[in-house]
Design a protein around this nucleic acid. Structure first.
Lengths: 348, 348
DNA sequence: CTGAAAGCGCTTACAG
DNA sequence: CTGAAAGCGCTTACAG
């Protein structure tokens, strides 16, 4: 069990010798192939356990002609949503014998494009990209043929495999919740009016329209990088530019929501009493801050699992029709939206 | 430059053929060895650029007899301190042609011990562990011989290579800052009275003693996992158990500080007016929350660089005397400690 | 300063 | 169902 730390690592041939079989048979057992009698399998397994054999992945990947590595491209690992997503991708990849090379773009479009073209220090078998700025045209223009899965809120349908939550439905759920709390003038921080279609803005509009509320463009505030500071600044400008503060605020990410709450509080507004706030992502801080944050929690595990299945499918079949898959989400209600006002009678 | 995506990847021999030299010469150029004339080097480089050659790391590592992988073991990647540390480790490792296998322990001692014993799905060349519970005895009992570097606040001197900031000095700086802000009754959330020596508690004591302030054990509150919720609960209990709230609070991590601030605010105390708060780590949220958090910022880049150098040194020389290196830190003053009271006249 | 050849530890047709 | 052998793409003594 515990081997001499200085001894060379046992090889497949060592295991084969101990078990009294050929390398091929050991390989069959390790890779779970059929056509091995149960008695042989057990004998081989015993030998594997005895010497503590673990395959040399460099040799395996070389022989198989693959890198054994997939890249996960995110804006910044420091953003907890991406960190937890990375954790799940690593977990799911491990189960498939894949390594995850994490690559940060810093939210730069140029870095996102470079990643799309496979500009990595090494060869990779697949690419999962969670982009902030990449457009469908960027993806369409891609020359590199490495299997690719895109994550995130953009609509990449018909361009590449894509997995995400239903952002329209999730945003709609968030805003409907604010309406149910009695909010009538709901701001959105992080809308992207310049984008051809912004699903979170669409969900926002749908919820308002369904409730018979007007859509007021001045309440929709764009930001560039989904950082807390930007959420704060955008909310400050919002408050400065409109005569009366909103009574609800939907932020495109929790981080933006934290910045927005900061701006609201600095302006003397109470959350949730004066302004109810809902974020998006369910980052761990959403629980730790005051007030704790109501938010949309995407199923990160499902995202990771689907992304890896899509990569596998592409590796296996080469050309495929781009797929678009949705994973579940959940509205997690916490303090930031707990209005005491009854629905229909918002506190003014 | 842009190759046919379906074409097989160019190999070393392809480059050699184009440049009209042997594989060995190309290898020399790629690995930066001397004894290559400048003209040859340029010719080879041109061939490399022409076909877009990138070495097959599986083959390289197999030939070199190494895995090309180091493991980074952290409690949870979702904790932004570890996420940003991971980012820096990945960056520094990439420069050395190493992959980083990130492994989460969930803060479990058993998982930390398993990692120490090298229980990974594959072979690794080195191990960087940022542990929460591992004791020097655990490290001493290690059977596995893989190069190891420990990070974090525990004192692992004489047991294994260790890199950290000077936690005593950093904590002392944090508490001295609170004292300079006029605080006289300073609580510490996250002390570990059970640990033989807790450097952050030591710095706290040193600062108080140097200022002629008493050390009050009831103001030092232990917590287990450095989570926000625990910081909140510990602070709640603190407020419930002492007759008068503290006027300053030092938290062992920013995340704990956020929880503590929550508890303070829920108890009707204002931060920083009633209680000034300092955290530790400088996570990105420290800037985004209200009030923004005064904190200790460790030089993560320096931690990553030193850790990798130590791994390299161990790989090269086998047995070495355990080293202990400190990296710089900085006190970042923000709103949570901005007391209006002049030093010496704390507001009551 | 450069070339030809062995070897790293697997997988995988190909025989049997 | 199992074995002997070639080959994956590098590195590295070893010659020259």
């Amino acid at each position: 069990m515990t081997a001499d730390p200085k001894a060379p690592r046992p090889r497949l041939t060592d295991v084969a010798e101990i078990a009294g079989v050929s390398m091929k048979t050991v390989s069959n057992v390790i890779n779970g192939y059929v056509h091995v009698t149960e008695a042989t399998r057990q004998r081989v397994q015993a030998a594997i356990d005895e010497v503590g054999y673990r395959p040399n992945l460099s040799a395996r990947n070389l022989a198989r002609g693959r890198a054994g590595v997939i890249a996960l491209v995110v804006p910044r690992l420091e953003m907890p949503y991406f960190a937890s997503l990375a954790g799940r991708v690593i977990e799911k990849a491990e189960a498939r014998g894949w390594f995850v090379l994490i690559h940060e773009t810093g939210g730069e479009l140029a870095a996102e494009r470079a990643a799309l073209e496979g500009h990595f220090p090494q060869r990779i078998d697949g690419l999962i990209v969670s982009a902030q700025h990449l457009t469908p045209d960027d993806v369409r223009a891609r020359a590199d043929g490495t299997p690719l899965v895109l994550l995130g809120e953009q609509d990449y349908r018909h361009v590449a495999d894509h997995v995400a939550i239903d952002n329209v439905a999730a945003s709609r759920a968030a805003v409907e919740h604010l309406i149910a709390q009695g909010c009538r003038r709901i701001a959105m921080v992080g809308a992207r009016p310049e984008a051809p279609d912004d699903p979170r803005a669409e969900g926002y509009r749908q919820a308002l329209t369904a409730a018979g509320l007007p859509i007021d463009g001045t309440l929709m505030r764009p930001i560039h990088g989904n950082l807390g500071e930007e959420g704060e600044r955008a909310t400050q400008r919002l408050l400065a530019e409109i005569p009366q503060p909103p009574d609800g605020l939907f932020a495109v990410t929790d981080w933006v929501a934290l910045g927005a709450i900061r701006a609201l509080q600095l302006a003397g507004l109470r959350v949730p009493e004066d302004v109810a706030v809902v974020g998006f992502d369910d980052i761990p801080y959403a629980r730790a801050v005051t007030p704790s944050l109501t938010t949309i929690a995407p199923d990160r595990s499902a995202i990771a699992e689907l992304a890896l299945r899509m990569l596998e499918a592409q590796s296996a079949s080469g050309e495929t029709v781009p797929m678009d898959e949705n994973v579940p989400f959940e509205l997690v209600v916490r303090e930031s939206s707990a209005r005491r006002a009854s629905p229909g009678r918002p506190s003014a």
